[in-house]
Structures are given as C-alpha cells and as structure tokens.
C-alpha cells in the first residue's frame, strides 16, 4: 500500500486545465466560465471538508457519529432527488417520499452488506459504512429520481387516459399499471446498462481507486462486483417503492386521481 501522495502543486496543474477551459468558454462565448470556476471551487471545498470530517470520524469510530453522518447524507440525497423533479409534490410529503425511497435503496442495502456480506467488526466501522452508503446513495439516486420524475410527468400528461380508466370502473392499480411499470423500467434501465458496460467500456470509479491505492486487481474487482450487485438491487427496490408510494399519494381512497397535490402548473 504505497500511494504516491499528491501535493498542492500537483492539484494546481490539474486545476489549470479548468482555467484554460474557462478562457476557451469566454472566447467561444459559451457563458459557462463563471459556473466552471464557481462549481470547481465548491467541489474542492466540499471534498476537503469531507476529507477532514472522515479523518475525524475514522479516528473516533463512534456509532453515534456514524449514524449522524449517515443521516445527514440520507437527508441530502432525499433533498437532491426531490429537487430534480420537474413537477414537485407540494408540501412535506414530496420530500418524505424521496427520502423514503432513498432509505430503501441505500440504507437497508448498506446495512445488509455490512452485517451479512462483509461482516466487518463492529458493523458500523466508518471506513466501510460511510463509503459504501455514499456509493449507494449516489448511484441509486439517478434511477430513483428518473422514475419519480417520469411518474409525475406522465400522470399529469395522461390524466385523461387514467381518469377514463377509472371511469370505466378500474381500480387505481389497474388504471395506472402500464404507466407505473413504464416508470419502473425507466428508473432501472441506467443501472442495467452500466452493468453491461462495466469493465468493457468503463472502469468503475471505485475499482480504479482501489487499484491506484495498491489493492490487487482481483480483490478490487470482487469489491466492484459486490457494489454493482448492491447498486442494482438498491436501485430496483428504491424505484419500486418510490413508484408504489407515489401511487398512494396521487390516488385517494376512493380511487380518484388527485393531481392537485402537485405544486402549481409549470411555467
């Protein structure tokens, strides 16, 4: 395990690439230079901060702090999923829904991995728990927000068809079956595609990191396979529960479509 430590100068060379890119953006009047600089600074600050937090967390190894950190990460992921919706569910229920889906997709799967598969002692060892949770949150988020976004959008656009089916005496489950399975597929396609491309087209980030860190490739690959399984399962469970819970929100007990829970019309 001998990693070549990066100096600030090394990072500065990489950062200069972005300076060149900003200049180019100005020349081509793309108007992206401000964003490039702002967000690269923000990313640097966020990552440095998390580096410090993780150093402290790893040193302390306390269950309470790990849970606190995990909760903060979960809340951030839930907010991110909610913020990515084009048509948002008004009030707290929209956020709760995103949060619930992220909990299913990441929290439960991480807990399973720590307790049953990796069996690290103690199970909340932050070196395992935090990166694992982070990876699951980050990777399942895309699928879940895609599926939920499509669900609200399709319910809005196809309200005529849905109401017609309800009028003919179908239950809300029947009336929205095609639409819901379509949304679930939309949410799961990206992870299925990335499983297909893994190793051939893309070298997954975690594996690359471990190899750079000196882990033998086959060990790194085994961890990557585990992660892919967990992400795929987490995305699937998360998407299914998100769509099911959306259904419960959008239809009331009398099987009526209640689009008024959406936040106003789009401008």
């Amino acid at each position: 395990m001998n990693v070549i430590s990066l100096s600030s100068f090394d990072l500065a060379i990489a950062a200069s690439l972005l300076v060149v890119l900003s200049l180019l953006s100005m020349l081509l009047s793309l108007g992206l230079e401000k964003k490039i600089i702002l967000f690269s600074c923000r990313m640097t600050a966020q990552l440095l901060l998390i580096g410090l937090v993780l150093r402290y967390l790893f040193a302390s190894g306390s269950l309470l702090l790990v849970l606190l950190m995990a909760t903060v990460m979960l809340l951030a992921a839930g907010r991110e999923v909610w913020a990515r919706q084009q048509r948002k569910i008004a009030g707290i229920s929209g956020f709760t829904l995103s949060l619930g889906a992220m909990f299913v997709s990441s929290f439960s799967v991480t807990a399973l991995a720590l307790l049953v598969i990796i069996r690290v002692e103690p199970w909340y060892t932050p070196q395992y728990a935090i990166p694992l949770l982070g990876m699951l949150l980050g990777n399942t988020m895309t699928g879940i927000s895609l599926a939920m976004d499509r669900m609200t959008d399709q319910l809005y656009k196809q309200r005529g068809v849905i109401e017609q089916r309800l009028l003919l005496g179908q239950s809300w489950q029947e009336a929205s079956r095609d639409l819901r399975s379509d949304c679930m597929r939309t949410g799961m396609i990206p992870i299925i595609n990335s499983m297909a491309a893994a190793g051939l087209v893309s070298l997954p980030g975690m594996m690359t990191g471990q190899i750079l860190g000196g882990t033998p490739p086959v060990e790194a690959v085994k961890y990557q396979i585990l992660i892919m399984f967990l992400i795929a399962a987490g995305t699937g469970f998360g998407v299914i529960s998100a769509i099911w819970m959306s259904g419960l929100l959008f239809f009331d007990k009398r099987h009526r479509l209640r689009l008024e829970i959406l936040k106003g019309p789009l401008k």
Partner: peptide
C-alpha cells in the same frame, strides 16, 4: 368500493380516451 360504484354508475365523458 369506488371501482364497483363506477361500474354501476358509469359516466361517458364528452371526450373519450383510449390507451
């Protein structure tokens, strides 16, 4: 139950939808 009600008291809206 709402679906049972709508199967007995059925509305045919002015604009029909087909899926």
């Amino acid at each position: 139950l709402a679906p049972a009600w709508r199967s007995r008291v059925t509305m045919v809206p002015a604009e029909s939808f087909w899926w």
